[in-house]
Structure formats: structure tokens, C-alpha cells
Design a protein around this nucleic acid. Structure first.
Lengths: 291, 291
DNA sequence: ACTATCCATAAGGTAATCTAATGCAAAGGC
DNA sequence: GCCTTTGCATTAGATTACCTTATGGATAGT
């Protein structure tokens, strides 16, 4: 006897509130045609038109207006109680742990696209620059981390390869005349806590002979290091693709021609201990595609 | 952010109210497996169990109980306002016009099956024994009527062929010794208003020679005629399949061996003037399959 | 023990729903 | 006025959600 197509009431609410099928479609992340069809079906089911169709706009019929307020009230009530009773729905939020550099320079620029692709999913970002304790229960769904090559498993897939190479501001470089790796030893090298070894690795790879590293500035975050380099405080071991935008804008310059770089692989790890849902899997795949 | 699978709330309401997936499935006309899957999906979505699973029964969790009352209130509200605003939903009811005999002896025995097949559809039966005025707007979706053979069109399909043959109660026949058609002329023939011609047709077909019909009892409805025959008041021209159940039980007997019968075709007509919906089409097909 | 009952699960099919492409009509820009 | 843009309708085809059938496990009743 009674059975409105409940899902289509969500569509009706949006279309009636926005007074536009197109805007409702955008809001619901479906096509305009889908809204049109659903409304046609709903009206056929109810046996009365809900909308007046004008040339380039729609308006509510009298009964449509009445129905809208009733539907809004019922859906509001339902949504409110659902949110109250089930505040954190695992399938509706995704948490990801990564360094502040990854968060700021890789993830943040993609958040807009993320929201477009997954408008109904909350994204929780937790930045932690230190290494996780190996035996600890993971607290996030995903994690972006650096690991040796060939670390790939189904739950830990390569995201991108980072190039680690010396960069500095154009202004800083102009005054130094750096040509060969060993010339760098005379410059202000900027060090990052937790990554102290990188300069050693770099010199070991690209310079033969013993090296005594100058200790100019040491900062505790890659982001600060980049800031310092942008201000012309010295040379950092920058990591592409994070610093690509500064290289493109010319704010930072590569000290040498491309080959003089280290490489390390960033992985995206899926913590299987936590419940794996369809949505999380979709986000996992989307993030990989961004790599 | 928020998006409960609205349709599954209907299932939840039924399952929680009946405290049984099987009974809910029956009520909703879906399989038990479908209920089980929907509840699993809903719980996964909400991130919390709604039911305790016991050995052969389920019970609500505390949060499930709270959710049930909220969902019931919201759905009730929605259903109430929908029924108020749209009292006659064309897709939710089907009307059919037929004679009282067809209604009582053909349709009524099938109503149970109909409700099982279309539990959400209201069936309106209008019995009218007189012929419809040809140029009048049809007031029902379907109509069962007798028409000449070869009357078939896409909108008017043959439902079954009725055999018209003399029958009477066993007790009545025992006292009469009827052997040949003309023996009938000495019996009480029961006539039906509107079908007066049938006896003439029968004698014309199965008896050569002029006939003067005895006029015993005349009733204004086939149902009364059958009643009269059951009481032993005389012989009627009964119509199979309507009287099949009396023949099977022995309450009525065929006066002659089977060949001595007339035949007429009952059709199911679909009134296209009225809105044709998916449901109405399904009912049309179902009725034809019953024929 | 044995049977019947109820829920869970998996595989596969059906039906609902969506998208992409296109049409149409009117409004707004030039 | 003509042209472009905008918004809804419609269709066919693809995709996804949903349902059914079949099966298994567990237990309560016989």
C-alpha cells in the first residue's frame, strides 16, 4: 500500500531546496539526467506533479511545497538521530598518517579533488614526523611512508619515487659559484632533524673522498627547511615532487644538473587491522592513482 | 558525510519490529537472505551492531532499540504525510470490473495469491452485471468481459474459454431421468436475467426441432442461479470454470456427457485511457497467467 | 538422534539506477 | 536579430545495487 521510493526522497529534497535539477545533481554527485528521471518516477508514483517545469527553471507546485517541508523534517530527524547514535561511521571517514611535508605539499593540493571524488567521506589527516613504533596498533587507515624498494605487498603499494637533490634560492646560488659537489662543502647546508643522514648519503654517492660536513642551520621539519631555502639561508636536500612547484616558479633552483640525486620510494600502506570497507578501498585506489 | 541507505531502513524497521529476519522477509516479500544482507550492510555502514544474534532468534542491541523508535517515527511521519497529500496513487491500486460471478468464483479464490504477488497494490473490484455503455469513459483499469472469438487486440487478450452446459444437483437429477436434450424441456429450467438467450442457444445447438421453453424460476444473478441449483430447484446452464469446484465436490452434476455445451470466451481488457504503469502492466500479465 | 527452524554466506542473475550523448527551447550577449 | 549558453528531457547502454537460490551451521524440539 505505501512505499515511496525512499532514496528518491533525498533527491527530491535536494532538487526542491535548490530549485534546480542540475545543482541537486552536483550536490548529490550524480548526473542531471538521474535527477530528472528520479523526479519523473516519483511524480508518476505519487500521481501528482511536484514541480512546475518552466523554460529554464523549475518551481514547486503547491503540493510539492508541502511535501518538501514534510520530507525535510523527516530526513533531518533521521540524519540527526543517526549522527547522534553513530557518531563515527567507519565507512564515512578515512584517516591517513603522513609527514607534515607530505601533508602540506602532496596531500593538501589534492584535497579539493578528493572532496569532489568523495564528497561524503571525511578525511582525517594526522601528521607525525617520527617513525612509528613497529609493534604498535595502527591508529589510522592509511599511512604514507618511505621504505626500501621492493617493499611492495598488496597492503603496501608504491606511491611515487622521490628524488632527493640539492636546491637553493636563485639569489643564494648567484653568490656562491658552485660547480662541483665538493664546492657545496663551503656553503651553508641546511640540516633536518631526523634526516641528518641524507647529506652523508648524498656526498657518499656523488663525491669521492672524505667529507667533513659543515653544520650551519638545523631545523626540525622539512617545511621549515624549505622556508629557509626560499629565504636564501642556504642549500637543502629538497625532495621532488614536493618542491616541484617552487622549481617551476623559479623560487628554488637545482644546484646541479639532474643526475646528482638520491632516490627514495614513498609507499601507501593500508592498515588491514582496521575494518576495510568499500569506501576505504576506493580511497586507497584513488590515492595510488594520484602518486 | 551523512547518507544512510534509506531503503534499508524500511527493512530494519520490519526486522526489528518482528524480531525476525524471516518474518520481516515475508512481510516485505523478499527473501530471508536479502534481509540478512541488508542488515549486515547497514550495521557495517553505521559501524555498530543493531542486533544480537542468538541461536535461533535475534534481539535488538541497546542502540538498535533506540534507533528503531527513531526510524519508526520518521517513517511513520513520511508515510502519513505521503498518504495525506497523495491519497490515490495510480501505481498503487488496480481496479477491475467484472460480473459478480467472475468476482466471486474466479477472482476471489485468487485474491490470496494476488496479495502474495502484489502486497503493495490495492485491488479494487467493481461488479457490474450489465453491459457497459460503449462510449462511456472506463472507470476501471481492467475489465473482464465476454466477447466473440477473434476479438483479441493488444489491449484485450483472451483470459479463458468458458463451457456453458446444463448442470443440476445430484438429488434433483435422480428424480428426473433425463437422457436426451429434449428431456430437459420437462424439467424446471432456471433462467438468469440478462442471459435469457442462453437456453435458446443451447437448444438450438443440441436439439433439432422447435422448442417451447418452460419458464420456471428466473433469477437476476448467476450466483443466485447456482445457489438455486445447489438446493435442487432445477437445472441451470452452468459455466465452467466457475462451477468446477461444485462439480469436483459432487454438489452439482453435468446433466449430459461433456460435448453438449456452448462455449464463450472471456477476455481481459486493459483500458488504455487510464495511465498505464509498470505495476498495472504486471497485474495485467499476472491476471492473464491465471486464466 | 533426528528433524525442523532460523540466520549466515556465496555465487549468480535480474532489475533498478546511473551516465553519456543528444535534443530542444528560451534567455542573454553582442 | 543572431549566436551562444543554459537547463531540463529523453534515449540507449553500462553499471551497480539488490535479490534469489542453494547451502551450511547451530540448536531446540520431537
Amino acid at each position: 500500500m505505501r512505499r515511496p521510493r525512499l532514496n528518491s526522497l533525498r533527491t527530491f529534497e535536494a532538487a526542491a531546496r535548490r530549485l534546480s535539477f542540475s545543482l541537486a545533481a552536483e550536490e548529490l554527485n550524480i548526473s542531471q539526467a538521474a535527477v530528472s528521471q528520479q523526479m519523473r518516477a516519483l511524480e508518476a508514483y505519487l500521481g501528482a506533479p511536484l514541480f512546475h517545469r518552466h523554460h529554464r527553471r523549475i518551481s514547486l507546485t503547491s503540493v510539492g511545497r508541502t511535501y518538501l517541508s514534510a520530507v525535510q523534517e523527516a530526513l533531518d530527524r533521521l540524519d540527526t538521530i543517526t549522527d547522534q547514535l553513530f557518531p563515527d561511521r567507519p565507512d564515512q571517514s578515512v584517516s591517513i598518517r603522513c609527514s607534515s611535508m607530505v601533508a602540506t605539499l602532496w596531500l593538501a593540493p589534492r584535497i579539493d579533488a578528493f572532496r569532489r571524488a568523495f564528497s561524503h567521506i571525511d578525511l582525517h589527516i594526522r601528521t607525525l614526523d617520527y617513525e612509528p613504533l613497529p609493534n604498535q596498533q595502527p591508529s589510522t587507515d592509511f599511512e604514507v611512508l618511505v621504505a626500501p624498494q621492493n617493499s611492495e605487498t598488496p597492503l603496501m603499494r608504491p606511491l611515487f619515487d622521490a628524488q632527493i637533490l640539492p636546491v637553493a634560492s636563485a639569489g643564494f646560488l648567484a653568490g656562491q659559484g658552485v660547480r662541483r659537489p665538493q664546492d657545496l662543502l663551503a656553503c651553508n647546508l641546511i640540516h633536518i632533524l631526523g634526516y641528518e643522514n641524507d647529506w652523508h648519503r648524498w656526498f657518499k654517492t656523488h663525491h669521492t673522498g672524505t667529507v667533513t660536513l659543515p653544520h650551519g642551520l638545523t631545523v626540525d621539519s622539512s617545511l621549515f627547511a624549505i622556508d629557509a631555502a626560499l629565504r636564501g639561508d642556504g642549500v637543502i636536500l629538497g625532495r621532488r615532487p614536493f618542491i616541484d612547484k617552487y622549481l617551476q616558479s623559479g623560487a628554488l633552483k637545482q644546484v646541479f644538473a639532474p643526475p646528482l640525486a638520491l632516490s627514495s620510494t614513498y609507499y601507501l600502506r593500508h592498515h588491514a587491522g582496521r575494518q576495510t570497507t568499500r569506501n576505504k578501498q576506493a580511497v586507497f585506489d584513488w590515492l595510488l592513482a594520484q602518486g
